[in-house]
């Protein structure tokens, strides 16, 4: 299987790998793939962490290596890059409805003044009501926070705007 691989083929493959903790969006849609560089059968992928402490980063790294080697890459280097810092604005527009359908309210975009964004109501991903309140800046993963919907009387998760 070994042989030259096209950059497009690598991007397409990365578009098939889903976030281990949000399995409805791909790494490409999540905006964590910064760069792809192909030299013959050697591939270098620049991967940006959403949050520095995100435990899923290691899983993403391993999966990228595995999938690209299966594609025929002799060598896969996944480099962790921090510049520019990942932002929820980097999530692809087409991924936003998928997040909401998964029960995870997408972050308002663009993130300019954090305090304004956090005090504005977020729509409940279940019933669409904006009669909601921010309950906790922190949630079940580093990239999520917890809101409460007064219409459904249920908490819901939302992407933490950064």
């Amino acid at each position: 299987m070994a042989g030259p691989i096209s950059v497009e083929r690598v991007w397409a493959e990365l578009g098939e790998i889903v976030d281990p903790e949000i399995p409805v969006v791909s790494l490409v849609e999540l905006g964590v793939i910064r760069e792809v560089d192909v030299r013959e059968d050697r591939v270098r992928v620049a991967l940006r962490p959403t949050f520095a402490g995100c435990p899923a980063l290691h899983v993403m790294r391993a999966q990228i290596g595995e999938r690209l080697r299966a594609l025929g890459a002799a060598e896969v280097e996944v480099e962790i890059v921090l510049d520019p810092p990942w932002s929820t604005d980097d999530i692809a527009p087409e991924a936003r409805p998928k997040l909401a359908a998964f029960g995870l309210a997408p972050a308002p975009s663009p993130v300019i003044v954090l305090e304004e964004i956090l005090t504005a109501p977020r729509a409940c991903p279940r019933c669409g009501s904006v009669d909601t309140v921010l309950r906790n800046d922190f949630g079940p993963t580093p990239c999520r926070m917890i809101h409460y919907c007064r219409a459904c009387l249920q908490p819901f998760e939302a992407m933490k705007p950064v």
Binding site: P49, A52, G53, N136, F138, G139, P140, P142
Partner: peptide, 18 residues
């Protein structure tokens, strides 16, 4: 809520240490 918050703060600080 604070159990969740401090678990996350710990994780963030560990990520920054990394």
């Amino acid at each position: 809520e604070e159990d969740i918050a401090f678990a996350n703060i710990a994780l963030d600080e560990m990520g920054h240490a990394g």
